[in-house]
């Protein structure tokens, strides 16, 4: 399935390329210890600039999802699942992704998932599959 790839910035680089080390990186503030996403040069909670991309477990659950049926472009493989994943590290720590390798009709809110990376060019997209263990 074709995908439009993101530009890399100083802040987003580890999020998009961490998959090369098979790790998901999410920005975290040193002083207040809170994670936040999308990555930025300052913590939105305490405004500290002591922030850094930090490896997380890559595990979480489906906060919500949708099964896309519309052929927006001819290059899409239909249907596919878009989801908002809430990571285990912190309540409300969310990112948008896809749930793959799973029958779309089987996806549920609350379903446990873990990250799996898909490399395209110099980007490792963090996608999610049903948790294995």
């Amino acid at each position: 399935m074709s995908r439009k790839l993101p530009a890399l910035t100083a802040e987003s680089q580890r999020f998009w390329q961490g998959g090369a080390e098979r790790r998901l990186f999410i920005h975290r503030c040193q002083p207040c210890q809170r994670f936040f996403h999308p990555p930025a040069p300052v913590c939105p909670h305490c405004l500290s600039e002591e922030v850094a991309a930090t490896a997380v477990s890559g595990r979480g659950q489906v906060a919500t999802f949708t099964i896309n049926h519309q052929a927006w472009t001819p290059q899409l493989d239909l249907p596919y699942v878009i989801a908002i994943i809430e990571l285990d590290e912190q309540p409300g720590l969310r990112l948008v992704s896809n749930v793959i390798n799973c029958e779309p009709a089987k996806v549920r809110i609350g379903m446990r998932v873990e990250v799996e990376f898909l490399q395209q060019e110099d980007i490792w997209l963090p996608l999610f599959v049903e948790e294995r263990s």
């Binding site: 995908r3 987003s12 878009i82 948008v96 896809n98």
Partner: peptide
């Protein structure tokens, strides 16, 4: 940029 790589098209 946080959505389109996952084919959030609309």
């Amino acid at each position: 940029q946080w959505y389109t790589p996952f084919n959030v098209v609309s």
